[in-house]
Simulated assay, not measured.
Amino acid sequence: MSEACGDLRYTITAAHTRHWVDEALEREMRRDDALAERLGGMQQRAVLPMLMLLPACGAGWLLIHRGATLETGITLALAALLLVPAWHLARPFAARLRSTMARQQADSTATGRPLNRALARLTLSMRFKRLQGAYRVQFDAQGMQVSRAGQRPASLRWNEVVHVRETDAFVVVACAALHRRGQAYWIPKDTDAMDPAAYRQGMAGLLDHCRAAPTMA
């Protein structure tokens, strides 16, 4: 990287990470609810076919263990004739069973949700807490370099940028590798780590380079 034309210093604080945890937690809860609903729906739809599978399994057992005798043929014919009325008779029972399963699933989800939420929050808090600390971003016409005390600097050339967006508090920049993993560089628009006017000027320069990146999403 050539001599930097911009230099930004900022701190990722506990307030920042709490906000990220809250957002990520809501996404995970919605994803878990959607998954539970899909699995429950699959189980409920399978009730009636499973009930009707029992006669088919019995017929298969007869064929395998008794062979194709006259009695076996008569039994299979009777089973086939009974299959249609059995299907209609099983439908009300299957409907009641599906209703019971849906009620039990809802109760189970409601009971387990507080614990699942607490465990998810703990996991996310530990993950995001590692991001807290002081950072420095230096940038020029070719790209930017993000450094943190005790860690190896990470460089990103502008022609590698595939994702740029702004939130109320951050500029979010990512290359293809980071974007695939759902990660990015989150650079605060405000900081207490340097003169506010100088930081705003530096941020304006950084945004100019980001907006000129080849691909924005």
Rank of each mutant, 00 (worst) to 15 (best):
S2Q: 15
E3K: 14
E3R: 15
L8V: 02
R9C: 01
T11E: 11
A15G: 12
H16S: 05
R18P: 04
V21P: 00
D22H: 05
E23M: 14
E26M: 11
R27A: 15
R30I: 04
R30M: 09
R31S: 07
R31L: 07
D32Q: 12
D33C: 09
E37V: 08
R38G: 06
Q44T: 12
Q44R: 15
V47Q: 06
P49C: 04
P49E: 07
L53F: 10
C57D: 06
L63V: 03
G67T: 01
E71V: 09
E71F: 08
I74D: 11
A80P: 02
L82C: 07
A86P: 00
W87D: 01
H88S: 05
L89R: 05
F93M: 12
A94T: 02
A94H: 01
R96Y: 09
L97D: 04
R98P: 01
T100R: 15
T100L: 15
R103S: 15
Q105T: 13
D107S: 14
S108M: 14
T109A: 15
T109C: 14
P114M: 04
L122M: 11
S125R: 03
R127H: 11
R127C: 05
Q132M: 13
A134W: 02
V137R: 02
V137E: 02
Q138D: 12
F139L: 06
Q142H: 15
Q142D: 15
Q145D: 10
A149T: 12
G150C: 03
A154W: 13
R157D: 12
V161L: 04
D168Y: 08
D168G: 14
A169D: 15
A176W: 04
A176N: 09
L178F: 09
L178I: 04
G182S: 04
Y185H: 14
I187T: 00
K189V: 01
T191K: 00
T191G: 00
T191S: 07
T191F: 02
D192L: 09
P196F: 08
A204R: 08
G205P: 01
H209D: 06
R211D: 05
A213I: 03
P214M: 06
T215V: 13
M216N: 12
